[in-house]
């Protein structure tokens, strides 16, 4: 039985807490829940995809196509709404379907033909991006309905805590919370997670143990595509346009969250909660430094240093505990 609250997650939470404390004390204007919550809207797409990416990396796989898939699904949504005159609800479903189809293609190529995930998704990354650019003729699609924008820009309810502290809680953040809960249960409390980690640890042994490895792979990549479709809806709503160049570089952001969260890039060990904490640590660091007046070129350097430090820490923790966390 694995402990629900592991050492690594606690350490990450501590880092996040200390960071938040330091920024609140030293950076004027940082401690304002309304602004912090506002900022989290921009993290939701990466956070959602980080959940299935945790599963993928746990199988020692990778998916580089997630950014392009978000762009392609968004364009499907925009085109069906603008040119196909579909009701927005159906267009949203079609976008999610397009994402799922893209993910299934990844899964099929990887599990059927045994193409390494890095190669397969590098190819589909170009493919999806090309389809998005081709379908939209390279131009963004605007004039989307307010209801779609509300999903990302709107608030679910006003959160009150303490005395007189009120912060509007973004609806999209609730979506992320729900998805994380689901991902956590699947990974840490069900056979899905056990099989996933087993495949990453030792694929041959997993096959001998009669785990349906190809079907698991297909399922995980398809689920990742589906989540990309959902993320594309929120992304399109957040920036009020469906864009062929949407989510450029999102794959690296997502992978960074997962790796900081303690999921091993070589597979076998996964932490859904860790990925989410990774997301918040990177986001909070960027936000706090920006508020503190650090210019964007130095910001990238500092984020890079953070990544190296966490990688070193994770490796150290892993060897020290003999691979138990």
């Amino acid at each position: 039985m694995r402990s629900a609250f592991l050492l690594r997650e606690a350490a990450l939470l501590l880092v996040l807490g200390v960071m938040f404390a330091a920024f609140s004390i030293f950076v004027p204007g940082f401690y304002d829940w309304t602004n912090v919550f506002d900022r989290t809207r921009h993290w939701v797409a990466a956070g959602l995809i980080a959940i299935p990416m945790t599963f993928i990396i746990a199988t020692a796989g990778i998916d580089l196509s997630v950014g392009s898939l978000v762009a392609m699904s968004g364009i499907v949504l925009g085109l069906l709404y603008r040119d196909g005159h579909w009701p927005i609800g159906l267009a949203v479903l079609a976008a999610i379907g397009a994402g799922m189809a893209g993910g299934a293609l990844n899964g099929a190529v990887i599990s059927r033909f045994g193409i390494p995930p890095l190669v397969a998704t590098l190819a589909t990354m170009a493919l999806f991006s090309g389809v998005a650019t081709g379908l939209s003729k390279g131009r963004p699609i605007g004039n989307l309905p307010a209801s779609l924008q509300w999903l990302s820009q709107g608030d679910a309810f006003v959160l009150r805590f303490g005395q007189g502290i009120a912060a509007p809680l973004p609806f999209s953040l609730l979506v992320l919370a729900a998805a994380t809960a689901l991902g956590w249960v699947l990974m840490h409390r069900s056979w899905v997670g056990r099989f996933t980690e087993f495949i990453g640890e030792n694929e041959m042994a997993a096959r001998f143990a009669a785990i349906p490895v190809p079907r698991m792979r297909l399922g995980i990549y398809t689920a990742c595509g589906l989540v990309c479709g959902v993320a594309s809806v929120l992304y399109t709503g957040l920036y009020a346009t469906a864009r062929p160049d949407a989510a450029r570089g999102l794959e690296l952001e997502v992978i960074a969250c997962v790796v900081i969260g303690g999921t091993r890039i070589s597979g076998g060990h996964a932490s859904v909660l860790g990925s989410l904490l990774g997301l918040f640590i990177i986001g909070m660091l960027k936000y706090g430094l920006q508020m503190g007046g650090v210019k964007s070129e130095y910001l990238i350097i500092l984020v890079g240093i953070l990544l190296i430090l966490t990688a070193v820490f994770n490796e150290w923790l892993f060897t020290r505990t003999g691979g138990k966390t």
């Binding site: 204007g29 940082f30 602004n35 506002d38 900022r39 921009h42 960027k286 936000y287 920006q290 964007s296």
Partner: peptide, 9 residues
């Protein structure tokens, strides 16, 4: 957009 969010804050 994210940077402007910071400037608003």
């Amino acid at each position: 957009a994210q940077m402007i969010e910071t400037w608003i804050a």
